[in-house]
Design a binder for these strands. Structure first.
Lengths: 298, 298
DNA sequence: CGATATTCATGCGCAACCCGCATCAATGGT
DNA sequence: ACCATTGATGCGGGTTGCGCATGAATATCG
């Protein structure tokens, strides 16, 4: 037989109101139920806490000692529960993110998985989109923030860099360039070049990086997604320049990775959001975790 | 559905041991029962406190916040219970008292009744005895202390006075002395004097007080108890000298009360105990209450 | 990859506990 | 003495919590 918190509540209410009947009413119990809770508490403690007749209820000396303690225990519990609920409130909710496919595929799952271990009550909505659509989703406030390439300079948007990475050459293992340590962009002019379409963020970065180059690769295949480029390379149809994140991790049976120089073109992936917009606690939490996670990795 | 202390215990044990099975064993529950208590706690709080697989148990971020709070609540409860039990221990037990009949009858019940309201767990054993027997009981340590007349001067005993009172004359209402304001002890020589036996403490005090008086009352009736004296007076058989405490309170249909002078003989009733002897907390408590109660009244 | 041991979650039946209603005894007040 | 009020207790019924048995999930090992 153990002490219940309900026993303590019954005792405190009865002591406060100096009446079993009134206390029972106050804590929504019948008088007999309250009577028994007091008796139980007294039995467990082995002391009389209240002296009572049908007309009068008063604290014994032990009861007077115990009352402030009981009250404090109940107050502390209430405080702790409110505190946890407050924390929980902060730590639940929905985080909505618009994300370019590369980041969605290559690093977001890991971060979300880790985050979910700490905050299992926080849900996610991930919108998979090209860099331009990510921007639009952020500007229209359809999502809390975006993870995308940095290229535009919009005063309404904040950009926080997460990763900066070079473009590398992916070519078939039996390709003439496969054994090279590095290849210049100009040398690609003589090979079938696979690239993404004009409207894409990656294409824009490449074009901007090559603006001053006299010798440039000419697109032989234009695709929509970087992963499709990789597929064509693997099929031996040509070479492609992809950001490092998109390259296969470790040795690949069919694809070689070669450094691209002259120039070294880099892209930055980061968090973009509307300047000064406040978001839910959950979104803030995830945002912080993203920053700490990827800044540490770099 | 409310939080139980058992829920908190289950949580703390599981967090400490990082295993449901081990925690269940540690707090003497089956694993399923423990599992359900954790689930209940999580449901009430609306958060996941523990992340678990069949192989691993770890705290969520909310769980990490809540653990020290839960631990503290349980610690505080334990402390409060021990404290109350300690107090209760001090406030329970047995008080044994040897007491002259007058005090036993006339004032002890009130004090015990009041005391019992504050310390209902303290029991009493009252030995009703003449002054000499009270002394013996105290000296032999058969009782915690005595309440008796003060006459002896024993270096082994401490005496603390409670009440000092004069002897008064009780006589039938139709007696010649009944209408007097005061009567000298010498005048009683001409009347039938009812008194207690030679061995009694009251008799001793009277004899000592009258040692220098040339004219003294001669005992016509010798009885054992003061209350018997009063009975005889009420029956019209004589007059008696009794301490004020033994006189009827307020007007009496058959007995008049008259002051006794020349000399005014007083007796002191107080607490007698063995010098330096330590007693139970309960006996100390009652002793203190006796002192405060009767010193206030005088 | 399959087999295995371990561990948390859940269904089930049973016992314990707690409830409110009804009733009685005690207690102050008139 | 009578009466209204209030705490204690018996009783029956509903709720809660238990352990046992079982299944699913999870690491580890060969």
């Amino acid at each position: 037989m153990n002490i219940d918190l309900e026993d303590l509540r019954a005792f405190v209410a009865t002591a406060d109101m100096q009446s079993f009947r009134a206390a029972a009413e106050a804590i929504n119990l019948s008088q007999p139920a309250l009577s028994r809770r007091i008796q139980k508490l007294e039995t467990v403690l082995g002391v009389m806490l209240l002296e009572r007749t049908t007309r009068r209820v008063s604290l014994t000396a032990v009861g007077r000692d115990f009352l402030p303690r009981a009250r404090r225990l109940l107050d502390d519990l209430e405080t702790s529960l409110m505190s946890v609920r407050e924390i929980a409130e902060k730590r639940s909710g929905l985080v909505s993110i618009a994300c370019i496919p590369t980041a969605a595929y290559y690093f977001l799952p890991d971060v979300i998985s880790d985050f979910g271990r700490d905050f299992p009550s926080i849900r996610f909505r991930i919108v998979d989109a090209g860099a331009n659509d990510v921007m639009q989703s952020v500007l229209s406030q359809r999502v809390d923030f975006g993870i995308t390439l940095w290229g535009a300079d919009d005063p309404d948007l904040d950009f926080e860099p997460l990763v900066e990475e070079p473009f590398l050459l992916a070519c078939p293992k039996d390709h003439p360039l496969a054994s090279r340590e590095s290849v210049s962009w100009g040398e690609l002019a003589d090979h079938r070049f696979i690239t993404v379409g004009r409207g894409s963020g990656n294409r824009l970065i490449m074009d901007l990086g090559l603006a001053q180059s006299r010798l440039r690769p000419q697109p032989f295949f234009e695709v929509q997604h970087l992963s499709t480029s990789l597929g064509l390379v693997e099929a031996g149809l040509g070479v492609a320049a992809l950001p490092r994140m998109s390259m296969p991790v470790g040795p690949h049976p069919r694809i070689a990775t070669v450094r691209l120089t002259d120039p070294v073109i880099r892209r930055t992936v980061g968090i973009v959001r509307i300047a000064g917009r406040s978001r839910s606690p959950a979104a803030e939490l995830f945002h912080e975790m993203l920053l700490s996670r990827w800044r540490m990795a770099e």
